[in-house]
Design a protein around this nucleic acid. Structure first.
Lengths: 187, 187
DNA sequence: ATGATTATTTACCATTTGGTAAAAGATTGA
DNA sequence: TCAATCTTTTACCAAATGGTAAATAATCAT
């Protein structure tokens, strides 16, 4: 919980009262490898903060899997499209390892945002960071060329690289695992 | 200006005082076709609301152009990465037609967000919408297959389709204009 | 209107990536 | 340890897209 608060304060300081109330609303849960933090078609009702572990957020289309992002320790995230609109999610979140998360319920967060201006600011910053990251990802995919994208990922995610399977990385890059295997050996 | 306020209130109601102050801080400017609303390497210091016209937001990499999004009438936008962090932008915004925009300065908006909780909420919603749209775009590009992506764009942007050149649409889809021409004729 | 410029189409071949299949390697559980 | 399972690599050919170039069509400025 300490990590969560530290992380939160880091990009937008919360008043003590707001921070305390946030903590009071937080719960902790552990998911085993392969378990789903968010099931397809369900509304995403939580913010997640990973204390330990690794997850992937992905969707299935035509029986093929596509990975939007990986989330590891000390990251606060959610399936924004579903969370923000409280409509069924196209995206699935799965634990790739045994994963412990701190959870904040959507309704609680909404109440906190209404009650505390600083919480609204905090949440705005959170969404802003997500937007910036997504912008970057769009740029990368557009420029495509799987080899370049692979190298970019390797450089920027060295700490979780060894924990991600070749197959999952291929699904993130939007290529087959055969192609990725080819790329890896060509270097 | 009426359109701007109407648009703003639509996704998050503003208190009268806040709305008035927002309007007081707004200015209007017209850009000729080909002129830049945001120059490369410059910090994006405004929110833009298009009263009339069409723009593209793009970047150049290895002498190739990639288009992130098109923005047309009654859309509120900015180069989020640069605007939110107030750092130089990799993205360029160009008017594709004579374009009239209502401008809100970053500093003014920050002040308004600090002063009015409802303005912070409004801005949070704005960024949220951007995030959801970007999520969708990432999904689409990942699933790729240029033909499908082209058809999706056509279906969802029928009102601006005729105003966008084949070359620009290709740069949005991340393929060459020759490929897009091929796709178009194959139908 | 006319020449100049810009946008689009077509053609050809090279390169990248996909699909299918199978082999090799690594991991897991009894 | 050994079989079963899962992951990664390799191979082969097909399909999609890129690069270059040139022809055609459309638009613009004088």
């Amino acid at each position: 919980m300490a990590d969560f608060l530290q992380y939160s304060n880091q990009f937008s300081p919360l008043e003590n009262e707001a921070a305390e109330e946030l903590i009071q609303n937080a719960t902790t849960k552990t998911f085993k490898k392969g378990e789903l933090l968010l099931q397809p078609g369900k509304v995403c009702r939580h913010l997640f903060f990973i204390n330990e572990g690794l997850t992937k957020m992905y969707f299935i289309s035509d029986d093929k899997e596509f990975i939007m992002r990986f989330f590891s320790e000390n990251v606060l995230f959610t399936a924004f499209a579903s969370y923000l609109t409280q409509t069924p999610s196209n995206y699935i979140i799965m634990a790739l390892e045994s994963t412990t998360v701190t959870l904040i319920r959507h309704n609680d967060m909404e109440d906190l945002c209404k009650k505390y201006h600083c919480m609204e600011t905090f949440f705005r910053k959170l969404v802003s960071i997500a937007t910036v990251k997504m912008t970057k990802r769009i740029s990368e995919i557009l420029e495509k060329n799987a080899t370049t994208n692979y190298n970019l990922f390797v450089n920027e995610n060295s700490q979780i690289l060894q924990r991600i399977s070749l197959g999952d990385l291929a699904k993130y890059l939007g290529i087959t695992q055969q192609s990725l295997s080819r790329i890896r050996t060509q270097k």
